[in-house]
Computed example of a mutant assay.
Amino acid sequence: MTAKARAAGIATTDGAYLGWSAHSDGSDRRATNGPVLTFNAAAGPAGVDVSAWNGPVDWATLHSGGAQLAYIKATEGNSSTSSIFTQQYDASHQAGLIRGAYHFANPAVSTGASQADYFVAYGRGWAPDGTTLPGVLDIEYDP
C-alpha cells in the first residue's frame, strides 16, 4: 500500500474505491496489463474502471471473478477520445457487466462546459435500461 493511498484513507488493497488501484510493485498508478477490482465487496458491488491503457480486457474472467460493473474512459479534455472505448464498452456489456462511460477532465485545456459538451458528443449509450450507468467525471489535481 502506498503512502498516497494511506493518506486517502485506504487501509487495505481491497478497501480501495473506484479510481484507485494497488499493484504488487507498490505503485498506485494504473497497470497497463489489465484492470484491478477496486471496490470492497463488503461495502458494495465489485467494479473496475478501464481505459485504453489497459488494452484488451478479459471481461468474461472479470465477471466470473465477481466484477459486476465497469466504467470505461470515453474522452479526455476536449480533443481526445479513447481509441478502444467502443470495444471495451460493448464487450463489457456482452459479458454481463453493468457499464458506464467516464470523462477525464483536464481543467488546463478548456472550460468545464466545453469538456462536458465534448463528453456528451463522443460518449455514448446512455439509456434507462437497467444495464447502463450514468456518465461520470474523473478530475484529478494534476492530470
Results as ranks from 00 to 15, higher is better:
80 S>G: 00
72 I>L: 13
20 W>I: 07
25 D>Q: 09
119 F>N: 01
16 A>F: 01
4 K>Y: 09
110 S>Q: 04
52 A>Y: 14
127 A>F: 03
95 A>E: 04
126 W>Q: 12
104 F>L: 10
41 A>E: 13
116 A>C: 04
126 W>A: 13
132 T>M: 09
86 T>Q: 03
42 A>R: 14
11 A>G: 14
31 A>V: 01
28 D>Q: 05
52 A>D: 11
129 D>L: 03
60 A>P: 03
87 Q>V: 13
8 A>I: 08
100 G>V: 02
96 G>D: 09
13 T>P: 03
114 S>Q: 14
33 N>E: 08
36 V>F: 08
17 Y>S: 07
102 Y>A: 04
69 L>E: 02
130 G>W: 10
96 G>M: 11
122 Y>F: 12
92 S>L: 06
90 D>G: 04
1 M>N: 09
7 A>Q: 13
10 I>Y: 13
10 I>C: 10
22 A>W: 10
40 N>G: 08
16 A>M: 15
99 R>E: 03
9 G>W: 12
119 F>R: 00
92 S>I: 09
45 P>T: 06
9 G>D: 01
64 S>M: 04
141 Y>C: 04
138 D>K: 07
42 A>I: 12
108 A>V: 07
31 A>L: 04
85 F>I: 12
137 L>G: 00
65 G>S: 12
77 G>F: 09
54 N>K: 08
139 I>C: 06
136 V>L: 09
71 Y>M: 02
37 L>W: 02
45 P>A: 15
125 G>C: 06
133 L>F: 06
67 A>H: 09
119 F>S: 00
5 A>D: 01
117 D>Y: 08
65 G>I: 10
35 P>N: 06
33 N>H: 10
53 W>D: 11
141 Y>L: 15
114 S>K: 12
16 A>E: 04
139 I>D: 03
18 L>G: 01
69 L>H: 03
12 T>Q: 13
57 V>H: 02
85 F>K: 05
114 S>A: 15
103 H>R: 13
129 D>W: 06
102 Y>I: 12
16 A>G: 04
106 N>H: 13
141 Y>T: 12
70 A>S: 09
130 G>N: 03
14 D>R: 09
63 H>Y: 11
77 G>R: 11
122 Y>K: 14
50 V>N: 03
24 S>H: 08
96 G>C: 13
57 V>I: 14
136 V>G: 02
91 A>R: 15
3 A>H: 07
131 T>D: 01
74 A>L: 10
106 N>M: 05
136 V>T: 10
60 A>E: 09
90 D>W: 05
58 D>V: 08
137 L>W: 14
128 P>Y: 06
12 T>A: 14
24 S>L: 07
63 H>P: 00
91 A>P: 02
11 A>L: 15
106 N>S: 08
33 N>W: 14
31 A>T: 05
37 L>T: 01
89 Y>S: 07
116 A>S: 08
117 D>C: 03
3 A>I: 14
20 W>A: 07
49 D>G: 05
31 A>S: 14
126 W>E: 06
80 S>F: 15
104 F>K: 07
91 A>H: 13
37 L>Q: 02
71 Y>E: 01
23 H>E: 01
19 G>A: 08
49 D>P: 06
82 S>G: 11
29 R>E: 01
142 D>A: 15
102 Y>V: 06
117 D>K: 15
9 G>L: 07
10 I>D: 00
5 A>N: 02
124 R>P: 00
68 Q>E: 15
5 A>V: 03
132 T>Y: 09
51 S>I: 12
96 G>K: 09
140 E>F: 08
